[in-house]
Simulated assay, not measured.
Amino acid sequence: MTDTLTTKAIELLKKLIETESFSSEEDKTATHIEHWFNDQNIPYKRTKNNIWATNKHFDETKPTLLLNSHHDTVKPNNGYTKDPFKAIVENGKLFGLGSNDAGGCLVSLLATFAHFYDRDNINYNLVIVASAEEENSGENGLNSMLSVIPKIDVAIVGEPTLMNLAVAEKGLVVFDAIIKGTPSHAAHPNNDNAIYKSIRVLEWFKNYTFKNASEALGEVKMTVTQINAGKQHNAVPADVKLVVDVRVNDRYSNQQIVDILQKEAPCDRIIPRSIKLNSSSIPIDHPLVIAGIEIGRSTYGSPTLSDQAVLTCPSLKLGPGDSTRSHSADEFIFINEIEDGIKIYIKLLEKVL
């Protein structure tokens, strides 16, 4: 049975690769996933471009485990040498946009869900969500499903981790900052040039250290990623605009980061775009983590963001593929990573279900 599920999972991934599914444009890949559920004779529901299902013997008296991964992708970058929308297999690698992030994880979780779908007398209910709009943190993604699906007690979020256990994940706050000065003609003296003032501000962002480091996630990482000022060569602008990317560890809430920067950053104004993408984690003594360690998987803290950020329950990030390949040119996943991923997911769940 597992071999058949694995074969069908890889066939589905090839179809997903060859179907454009940019964030908020995933309707066609959602239809492919519907066809897969039909082929497995598993009832499902579709909410916009999110496809979800529960196990056959769902019992409201039991805790519920969410299996989740996404089927949207970023747009291909200009470095591709292969067709990003063609599933190409070479030397054991399956190339194509979304193969690694996170198509391999999604189809592996779908196969795992199908494996356990009609299992009776298990300790957890299972809910699977093939979600949309992960890459752009859109309003119609997993966050929109939490009021639709049954209440979740714990989650496995499928993202490429080399099938190791990401027991914590950094959150994200993006800030828009402004440094104000006095506008003037470039030919006249000006001791309040916003561009020159920005030098000191940029140094402050470069050197600032948040006090609380995390055992799993290390320090909060703050990076100025964009700067914009001026429109013509002979005019000193009135202000300089910065974009600041802050990756938040589990020692701070996003609101605490906002409070600190609004108090201490030497800007005239610094405003968060959103504070909803918080850090996430799972206790190291949670049965899922213990089970993963027992089957030989290592633990680590992940610096990258996923749909874990919208969950309030404990969550574990785990999936086939390598995060360093995500959003890269000629993205790929090894076929054997999918095969092994399904086996490891099943082995893990066998220990807790």
Score class of each variant (00 low, 15 high):
residue 9 A to R: 10
residue 9 A to Q: 07
residue 12 L to P: 03
residue 19 T to N: 05
residue 27 D to T: 13
residue 28 K to E: 15
residue 29 T to W: 09
residue 34 E to Q: 13
residue 38 N to F: 09
residue 43 P to L: 11
residue 48 K to P: 06
residue 51 I to P: 05
residue 51 I to V: 15
residue 58 F to D: 08
residue 62 K to C: 04
residue 72 D to P: 04
residue 81 T to M: 00
residue 81 T to C: 04
residue 87 A to W: 03
residue 89 V to D: 01
residue 93 K to E: 06
residue 98 G to Y: 14
residue 102 A to I: 13
residue 107 V to L: 15
residue 109 L to M: 03
residue 109 L to I: 01
residue 123 N to Y: 07
residue 124 Y to C: 04
residue 125 N to E: 05
residue 127 V to I: 06
residue 130 A to D: 11
residue 134 E to V: 06
residue 138 G to S: 03
residue 144 S to R: 14
residue 149 I to K: 00
residue 151 K to F: 07
residue 163 M to P: 14
residue 172 L to Q: 13
residue 173 V to D: 12
residue 181 G to Y: 02
residue 188 H to A: 14
residue 191 N to V: 00
residue 192 D to I: 11
residue 201 V to I: 07
residue 202 L to W: 05
residue 210 F to C: 11
residue 211 K to R: 11
residue 212 N to S: 12
residue 215 E to Y: 02
residue 223 T to W: 13
residue 229 A to N: 02
residue 229 A to T: 00
residue 231 K to S: 05
residue 237 P to D: 04
residue 237 P to S: 03
residue 240 V to K: 07
residue 243 V to E: 10
residue 245 D to K: 05
residue 245 D to F: 01
residue 245 D to G: 06
residue 247 R to K: 13
residue 247 R to D: 04
residue 249 N to T: 08
residue 254 N to C: 09
residue 256 Q to D: 07
residue 260 I to R: 03
residue 262 Q to M: 05
residue 265 A to Y: 05
residue 265 A to N: 03
residue 267 C to Y: 14
residue 274 S to M: 08
residue 279 S to D: 04
residue 284 I to N: 13
residue 286 H to M: 09
residue 289 V to I: 04
residue 292 G to Q: 09
residue 301 G to K: 06
residue 301 G to A: 02
residue 303 P to K: 03
residue 312 T to S: 15
residue 316 L to A: 05
residue 320 P to V: 14
residue 321 G to H: 05
residue 322 D to I: 02
residue 323 S to W: 04
residue 336 N to K: 13
residue 339 E to A: 01
residue 341 G to E: 05
residue 343 K to T: 14
residue 347 K to E: 15
